[in-house]
Design a protein around this nucleic acid. Sequence first.
DNA 1: CTTTTACAATCGAAATTTCAGATGGAGGAT
DNA 2: ATCCTCCATCTGAAATTTCGATTGTAAAAG
Lengths: 294, 294
Amino acid sequence: MDTRLLIAFVTVASLHNFTKAADQLGYAQSTITSQIQLLEKELGVKLFDRLGKKISLTPEGEQFLINARQLLFSWEKAKGSISLLKSPHGILTIGVNESVCSVKLPRLLEEYRKRYPEVEFHIKIGSTDELELWLHENQIDVAVLLDKFWNVPELAVKVLQEESLGFFVSKDHPLVGVKNILPFDLSNHPMLLVSHSSCWKNIFQAVMDEANETYRIMLETASISDLKQFAILGFGVAVLPLYAVHEEITSNRLSMIDWKGKELKLFVQVVHHRDKWLSPSMEAFFKVCEDIKW
Amino acid sequence: MDTRLLIAFVTVASLHNFTKAADQLGYAQSTITSQIQLLEKELGVKLFDRLGKKISLTPEGEQFLINARQLLFSWEKAKGSISLLKSPHGILTIGVNESVCSVKLPRLLEEYRKRYPEVEFHIKIGSTDELELWLHENQIDVAVLLDKFWNVPELAVKVLQEESLGFFVSKDHPLVGVKNILPFDLSNHPMLLVSHSSCWKNIFQAVMDEANETYRIMLETASISDLKQFAILGFGVAVLPLYAVHEEITSNRLSMIDWKGKELKLFVQVVHHRDKWLSPSMEAFFKVCEDIKW
DNA sequence: CTTTTACAATCGAAATTTCAGATGGAGGAT
DNA sequence: ATCCTCCATCTGAAATTTCGATTGTAAAAG
């Protein structure tokens, strides 16, 4: 059963005239005849009495006219509710690394919410590996992460910003004031590393490996703020992205050492699954990512 | 938009699988694919995410699934409410002559109502000419009349019973006991005729004309019971069908004269417009007409 | 890491449906 | 009687739907 048949029927019923209905709908008159016949066949009921020149609805036709109007209305409503969904709306599920979540995300979401207040956020925090899994399983719509450049075929990655890892120590640490620090200089200092995202550690390790140096881990913790606390207390050298310690630097509680080794490059990236349909709220999210100052 | 598309969509959504849906619906798998694509195109929205082997509904798909189920349900309900109408029901508008109404109709309707209590009657009483007009204008579904045989091309006529007109007089009338009464014998007696249905008068007149006799009209009245009263009071010879005076004969208030002239044949007929669709209640009416003893 | 399996997309051909235009016929109007 | 209006029917063309075969690609199994 096609809505065209219903439209034809309703039109004929309101105009009491096959020919006018055909004109109004842009069909040939014969088309209307056969459409009505089709409908009558499907329902097993005559809908119109054709007595002489005038047509009139049978009782069944009267009844069905009500139903037909109702059905068409419901159909339009259904279409309408879909197109409402086309402007950003509903739930946007974002996966992020912890560091991104605490530092980068608030500004991003603030701007997003300002533009698209209809959208509600669900945030899932996890390691880069977990993010990849979630993208794969369609558990998150989009991921924002700080990591080395991702190159997974089925994921669409967009780099938003470059970041570097830095080495941060308390202001009375022996490395403070030392110029041109190289991997060798770190080998005897206990290191403070974030455990939940293996990436930062890997990048650091890669640099040390390349310089044929070893290092000692004083502490691995999942919490960036804990890590900073231990650094402030002089436990060792914290490996962190600069933006994460911005406040501690300005308040002089931590100092960045003068690293001259290979740069520990990281990228803020926004990622989604290539095969996933981009909902309006996702499209909007990517746009906001591009627009805001990082 | 076709319900087939909705059915395909709902089926796929519940089975989470195009192939199984195709099997269940008896389509080729490619058909399901194109049906879903058609629906997506019409809505302008992706309904399924095809991530790897698994498919899952997009948010739009979720929303539309609700709508689609609702629409299909409404459609089934509409069809159901129509087929309910297929058993006799609703209003049956019957046009009858007055004489039929008072004498024949009650038994007919009693039987009909016993079989089909869902049907409500509207009775329109009128002359044979009026009945023809009403049938033409679709103001009545069916007509029952007592008249000469009707032969109108666009009307379907079925004879239910033969009736003859008789001549009825009070028991002390001079014609009582007279044998073999012929048109000549009536020429000097005042006649009592029903006015609203010209037919009976015409038939009587035809018989008299054929015998080259004239007659006097004492009274023309629209009411059969009035006519009978005048006859009982001896005002003249009443021309009526036998069944209309059955009670007066048995109670000996009226006598039928021994008419030997040409028989004044009438027919109880049930009539409907050939082009009108026969609703179940009409079909049932014809059946009851055939079944009952007249 | 390769093979197999499961599943949806795509393509071309066949079947089916839809449509317009011509024609016909019945009913009203002039 | 004649014309006009209006619906039904028929017919061929165009559009669409359907199917079967094939392809492509993840996931699962080996």
